[in-house]
């Protein structure tokens, strides 16, 4: 089997096992109030970190590029209480323009 096939099938199998294991932890283990609190906070932490990395990182380098302007536009629109699709389109448009002209 080629490197490509091993990479494709190996990573796919492990990705599914990770997802399935998370969904299979018994309820009784998750009902403790402390676990519930932590469990509610984990996605907030992960998704915020994901946003930061997707905005300011290029692999393992920190960069300031058109995406930062797109994100600034998104936050401005959120503060102005714009609906969700407008936030996404506004950020994309701003970033595309910045990419084109800067």
């Amino acid at each position: 089997m080629s490197t490509f096939w091993i990479a494709v099938l190996g990573s796919s199998t492990l990705a599914f096992m990770t997802k399935f294991l998370g969904a299979s932890v018994p309820q009784s283990l998750l009902n403790h109030p402390r676990i519930l609190r932590i469990n509610n906070l984990i996605p907030v932490a992960l998704l915020t970190a994901l946003v930061a990395v997707n905005t300011f990182a290029d692999k393992t380098k920190l960069v300031l590029d058109s995406r930062a302007l797109g994100m600034a536009a998104a936050i401005t629109l959120l503060i102005a209480k714009a609906p969700f699709p407008i936030v996404v389109i506004g950020a994309g448009l701003t970033s595309a323009l910045a990419y084109r002209f800067i």
Partner: peptide, 18 residues
């Protein structure tokens, strides 16, 4: 990047988190 897709994706996440 030229289509702004690389910013639209994190913007979608911040919009969901907000």
């Amino acid at each position: 990047s030229a289509w702004g897709l690389d910013a639209a994706v994190p913007a979608a996440f911040i919009g969901l988190l907000w």
